[in-house]
Design a protein around this nucleic acid. Structure first.
Length: 519
RNA sequence: GGCUCCGUAGCCAAGUGGCUAAGGCAGCGGAUUGCAAAUCCGCCAUCGUCGGUUCGACUCCGACCGGAGCCUCCA
């Protein structure tokens, strides 16, 4: 369980299980097995579904960049009560609906630059694995069949509740119609008998389908082994889902399921007071205003619009920046305002990229991301300030993936590079030494933004068919205006600029000429 | 009622037992510009309230107030 590879950096990870940070030590030296609970595919994904994937994509990028080999698994729950209900309502089949919604999910992930998923198992493709897992639990006396269902017997699991610090007595269980088939209320279903007309698989207990928690235990074992390194998910999955996964897996295997349990904070729809969940709290006389403005997690708010709708209004880069600007364990305040703000903040990067491309004639997006983390000496050409910022960035990422600080150092880096360009007048002069230093700085920028999965592709231009024509016209307008300015005819020059601004085109008179961009 | 967690500038958001409490957005002043835009420089917080521990706390402990999550499906 120790990392023999001594050249790997020390990375600290917070685990919900221990409630503290400890240095990453992997089951297999140099290899990280990582499992993230993915979506139940019954509706188009919303922004809340994107949080975990973006965060763990960033985790994987940083681990891989730091020298580990990483296998990242994200499951897709494609058999479930909600899918059955939704497909019935739509008059389609569970399989078809799941396929459609999985495609939607994958498309959204790709848009956000989540590219690191290695394996994406589906529950329906692992029914045999799941049944074998359940049989193992029954054989060990940890589970029992009851009238076509199979339940996990929590009373046989001495450390049940260790993840969330609660006792069997404190859990209420599903209740409802299954109550009388269970030995105790906190027992949970491993296998559910099919009702007539429902999708079903044959099993030793009759036709049915897997319970909610078992697929993750069975599939993570099949792909990553009984004990792997990192298990992730949203904070709302800690109980009962992850608690029950631990119960199943550790009861069967007698070893830890995952060394680190990482949970991301939930998207909050600021101001969109949804229903007030949970049991009533003691006090009365609640402040109406506070209640009205209370944030609510997206999945329980009315703000959970399909992610695709969101993309019509906001650039994916702005969304990723927003997600990474907050520490991953904190809730994220979400809404039009925060998104617009992070969009504006992000444009400072793109302006710098464009500026440096004008100077160096090098495509920033085409620069190679340094894929293996190197020591300070490797980036010395970029100067002390940049080297120091890079060290700060890496230290932040090594400290439980503190992307908020990492982002802050990136903003500092933008300022440092802009200042360097200003001070050396690189837009008009081209001294070779300074250009080389600028190139080194941009390589660091490319390296670090790459670790966060940002700016990997040139943003798509507004795809107007007349784009070439517009560019030609703009060249003409700018030339005419330049002549006016030369002739000190500023009235004409300002008229042109003001009219263009009103039309959504911004003119910038720079030392090396006039540029334009769409607002 | 039980279990987690949070409360930092106008807004968002890091962080630390004692050194200048990151960064972003907005705002203000300056440099630059024909004027702008962009860029750069500078300004803008004593850390929910009240107690306690300590030589010293925003950081630890307690109480209180406010907010979030979970205890039922949820990323």
């Amino acid at each position: 369980m120790a990392d023999a590879a001594g050249d790997l950096p020390r990375i600290e990870i917070y685990s919900t299980l221990t409630r503290k940070k400890t240095p990453l030590e992997t089951v297999q030296p140099g290899h990280v097995g990582m499992y993230l609970c993915g979506p139940t595919v019954y509706k188009p994904s919303h922004i809340g579904h994107m949080v975990g994937p973006v965060i763990f994509d960033t985790v994987k990028r940083h681990l891989a960049y730091s020298g580990w080999k990483v296998t990242w698994v994200v499951n897709v729950t494609d058999v479930d009560d909600k899918i059955i209900a939704e497909s019935a309502a739509r008059g389609t089949t569970m399989a078809k609906l799941a396929e459609e919604m999985t495609a939607d999910y994958l498309e959204n992930l790709a848009t956000l630059g989540v590219t690191g998923i290695d394996v994406m198992p589906k529950a329906t493709e692992h029914i045999g694995t799941i049944i074998a897992f359940i049989e193992g639990l029954i054989a060990k006396g940890m589970a029992y069949a009851s009238d076509g269902d199979v339940y996990f017997d929590v009373t046989r699991d001495p450390d049940y509740g260790k993840l969330t610090n609660r006792s069997v007595e404190q859990t209420q269980g599903e209740g409802g119609s299954t109550a009388e088939r269970k030995r105790s209320a906190a027992d949970f279903a491993l296998w559910k008998q099919a009702k007539p007309g429902e999708p079903a698989w044959d099993s030793p207990w009759g036709p049915g389908r897997p319970g909610w928690h078992i697929e993750c235990s069975a599939m993570s074992k099949a792909i990553l082994g009984p004990h792997f390194d990192i298990h992730g998910g949203g904070l709302d999955l800690v109980f009962p889902h992850h608690e029950n996964e631990i119960a199943q897996s550790e009861s069967l295997h007698d070893c830890p399921m995952a060394t680190y349990w990482m949970h991301n904070g939930l998207m909050q729809a600021a101001g969109a007071a949804g229903k007030v969940g949970g049991r009533p709290r003691g006090g009365e006389g609640s402040a109406d205003d506070a209640a009205a403005q209370a944030a609510t997690k997206i999945s329980k708010s009315t703000g959970a619009e399909p992610f695709k709708n969101l993309l019509a209004r906001h650039r994916p880069e702005a969304i990723r920046v927003l997600l990474l600007s907050t520490h991953y364990r904190s809730p994220i305040h979400f809404g039009e305002e925060p998104l617009g703000e992070s969009g504006r903040a992000m444009e400072a990067f793109e302006r710098l990229f464009a500026r440096s491309e004008r100077i160096t004639a090098t495509d920033f997006y085409g620069l190679p991301c340094r894929d293996r983390r190197a020591g300070d000496a490797a980036v010395a050409a970029a100067g002390d300030e940049v080297t120091a910022l890079r060290a700060k960035f890496l230290a932040a990422m090594d400290d439980d993936f503190n992307t908020a600080i990492a982002m802050a150092t990136l903003f500092d880096l933008v300022r440092v590079v802009n200042k360097f360009i200003d001070q050396h007048g690189l837009e008009t002069k081209k001294p070779a030494a300074e250009l080389a230093a600028l190139g080194a700085m941009l390589l660091v920028m490319r390296e670090l933004t790459g670790v966060l999965g940002l700016f990997l592709q040139r943003p798509r231009q507004a795809a107007g068919a007349d784009e070439g024509l517009v560019a030609q016209l703009m060249d003409l307008v700018i030339e005419i205006r330049a002549n006016a300015r030369k002739a000190k005819d500023f009235g004409t020059a300002d008229l042109v600029r003001n009219k263009l601004t009103a039309a959504g085109i911004v003119l910038e008179d720079r030392p090396d000429g006039t540029g334009w961009s769409r607002k």
